[in-house]
Design a binder for these strands. Sequence first.
DNA 1: ACCCAGTACTTGGTCATACATAGTACTTTT
DNA 2: AAAAGTACTATGTATGACCAAGTACTGGGT
Lengths: 111, 111
Amino acid sequence: MNLENTQVQMRKGILEYCILHIISRGEVYASDMLDELTAAKMIVVEGTLYPLLTRLKNAGLLEYKWIESKSGPPRKYYKLTDKGSKFLEKLTETWDDLVHSTQMITLKSNA
Amino acid sequence: MNLENTQVQMRKGILEYCILHIISRGEVYASDMLDELTAAKMIVVEGTLYPLLTRLKNAGLLEYKWIESKSGPPRKYYKLTDKGSKFLEKLTETWDDLVHSTQMITLKSNA
DNA sequence: ACCCAGTACTTGGTCATACATAGTACTTTT
DNA sequence: AAAAGTACTATGTATGACCAAGTACTGGGT
């Protein structure tokens, strides 16, 4: 019941939504995403991101192609499938609802 | 990777925050909370709420007293401890940060 | 007095996922 | 050829929402 753990729990599920969003804006590979998530203070590490991408790919929401890099091994560039776009739409609704529900409860104390 | 499951995951941790908030507004018992959470479409069932309350109590964030009811068995009326109030403050920060982080990512696509 | 329905709370088990940690594979540099 | 760096993979742990069944107390009907 410590704070850090609760923060981790709060991130659950939301991360998935954020990652789909990032990918929806254009083809990216894992390190790009990691940079953006870090910039947004949505702290994430490799060991969280990669399995999540694999899960999303296996669910048919993402696809990727290998693109060679000038410095290092080739990279997986991800993009959304049609199914992924539709899923993202639904998730957006879910997230908006959740924020709204939370506001209903947390703003009530000021009434 | 179905939608319903993701919705469940998104609720993780946030529920705890909402419940602390509800209790912060005055003494309530479980069914009161359930009603309010349901009204806010933060779907929750008994089997989720009761263990959560027990967890929060064991962590010293809540305390309760038994109050007799006119219809049925006595009820546990909960209120926040000092520690609980402080924890709620921290959680509020965490939630606000999370919403902000998510906005940074999801609003970028419109830029 | 007894049974039954309703209300309040409890408990044990399952599942999904964020994270830690360690490991593999390929490329460039020296 | 060895070392360092980059990208990705795999395994194990912990947490918490949910399901489902169960316990305990109350009051009404017969």
